[in-house]
Design a protein around this nucleic acid. Structure first.
Lengths: 339, 339
DNA sequence: CTGAAAGCGCTAACAG
DNA sequence: CTGTTAGCGCTTTCAG
């Protein structure tokens, strides 16, 4: 069961040179005009003795690792986990593996992780950039490393990315609430000037303008303890008495729902950016802006693979539409506590 | 920005030998009696020019990759994603990276993935074994590779594992339902003879015996399309008219809840094995058997690190208690459709 | 078609 | 304390 067979062993076994074996193993038999008979003989023997080339040596020699580095905000967030899952499947079918780390959206950690992947010579990068990593990304770009950002991008940086149409999604969500007759529509978002948050804010504001409403914005810290955030929400709800709340991410929505339920306050209308498996099971079911997860994953991996194949392309920047899935939580009229 | 600096470059720069530099870089300065002055000089210079050793070459040379292979059923399942998250953090702090793949619980894929990791010379393995992978695991064991299984184990195989006390958890859940006065308590589980499923079944049956009830068991296929499973559930519910249902996994519970809601049937009592962030927000809130995720992750990584450190240990088999979190869904008395 | 041989960059005997 | 050097296992010129 020892895996000690070397390419030289199999060359010796068959009385041929390692070069020949190497060529055959790397599919260059035809190109190098090696006879079909020999090719088959080698392949059969390799199969029989179960020889597996040492990928490490291969990588050292070729500079290719066949590994993609996935630098993601948080793998335990269903949105990211689902994307990771889809990317993994695609990558796998192309012979690439995934190595990943979660950044918690902390710049230091993100920078360190990217460096780590770089030390490990991953072939390509898929990254959700946190704030303050522009230099690091630029350095990757300068080194011509295949790279694609997602969920958010870095303004002004010529770079592949795949994001959803956050502005439009947020506009649609807010407009929908306005059309339902809600007057005090609040936005709950993060302290963050990343593009996805900024765009959701802008979409919200545009709808507020369109419908001539007043904005009510609550910002919270991503890192805070959940119960603190819950309390924070509750005082916001009490102070501002919104009759509808648009949450800028699904974990904000979840925390918000906790706040609402724990306090047994009148249930405001609710819309979440990002859907969640269970939102359709809630009572009431939760209206959500659903990002096209599959399309995002597809674009990501395609862009990256194209780069990896050396088809050097101009930066590709993809903005995919989100879909507003209207459920009960934005239609219940029981709670118009509007002034 | 080119990262082309070699260890020989820095040796040359400083007029010392590569050995010296290598020793210093690997923390063997003291051991090799290299002067503090020189050590500092080297370290400073390395810092200054930003030299990073090529990890690939290092790995090829030492046989260590500092990578842990995580072979998991499905990274998009919150239970696994959360464990992955915790493992990642621990591993990271010890200088290990994670490389992962999802198996969908398919034997072929699992075997292939393990082989892949092996080719890549990962230093250790954390695996949720699917059925039919005994030989592969044994081969890993024979090769003395650090390895720990979790969520389920392979009966009769002397091997590290970390699981929760599935039997007890299932017993507690079922007993709780019985104590609440439910008479027709159904178990919804998978077609699977893996240990975790088998033990949950056994726990259920023991409670059924204890309380002298009749068992009602529904098995479904993991791979089926969700809507098919939903329909399947519905006919089961109609046929058997259980007044309580114990779901053997949280995704079964979620699918089950969909079935119940879509059909607007009387809401039976519900308990889920595995908790879920949103279960406490449901109406009714969902009673669940909660696995000690942090403890599981801790044990996993500790066992693995101990092995990686060469502290060869006798196989360690850890069974952690689960906790029954009683919420509304197992107490609502509105729907005792008991015969 | 095939073989010899030069590395990829680093570690660690071994010999000063 | 330090330098020389032999590989780790594989790919890939460059000559046959």
């Amino acid at each position: 069961m020892k895996k000690k067979i070397l390419i030289s062993d199999i060359a010796k076994d068959l009385g041929v040179s390692v070069t020949t074996v190497s060529f055959i193993l790397n599919g260059k038999a035809k190109e190098k005009r090696i006879s079909d008979g020999l090719t088959k003989r080698v392949l059969d023997h390799v199969q029989k003795v179960g020889y597996k080339p040492n990928e490490l040596a291969k990588s050292l020699r070729t500079g290719k690792t066949k590994i993609i580095g996935l630098v993601i905000e948080d793998i335990s967030n269903p949105f990211f986990a689902n994307i990771a899952r889809l990317i993994e499947a695609k990558a796998y079918s192309q012979g690439y593996r995934i190595i990943y780390c979660s950044t918690d959206n902390q710049p230091d950690k993100t920078i360190e992780l990217i460096q780590l992947f770089r030390d490990r010579h991953v072939d390509g990068y898929i990254i959700t950039p946190s704030e303050g990593v522009r230099d690091t990304i630029e350095s990757l770009l300068n080194s011509q490393l295949p790279l694609v950002l997602f969920d958010r991008y870095i303004p002004g940086l010529e770079c592949n990315y795949v994001v959803s149409d956050n502005m439009r999604g947020a506009y649609d969500a807010t407009a929908h609430l306005a059309q339902q007759g809600y007057k005090r529509i609040a936005l709950v978002t993060l302290y963050s000037s990343q593009t996805q948050m900024r765009d959701r804010m802008n979409g919200y504001m545009r709808a507020i303008d369109t419908y001539k409403l007043q904005p009510y914005v609550k910002k919270v810290n991503l890192g805070d303890e959940e119960q603190a955030t819950v309390n924070d929400f509750q005082s916001f709800l009490e102070d501002q008495q919104p009759d509808a709340v648009f949450f800028a991410t699904n974990y904000l929505a979840i925390t918000g729902l906790k706040a609402i339920q724990q306090h047994h306050m009148p249930f405001p209308a609710v819309v979440s950016y990002d859907d969640h498996t269970l939102f359709k099971l809630f009572a009431p079911t939760i209206t959500a802006v659903s990002q096209p997860i599959e399309a995002i994953a597809d674009e990501l991996i395609n862009i990256l693979l194209n780069q990896l194949d050396g088809r050097v392309k101009a930066p590709k920047q993809v903005v995919l539409p989100s879909e507003l899935i209207i459920r009960e939580s934005s239609q219940v009229q029981i709670s118009s506590t509007a002034s």
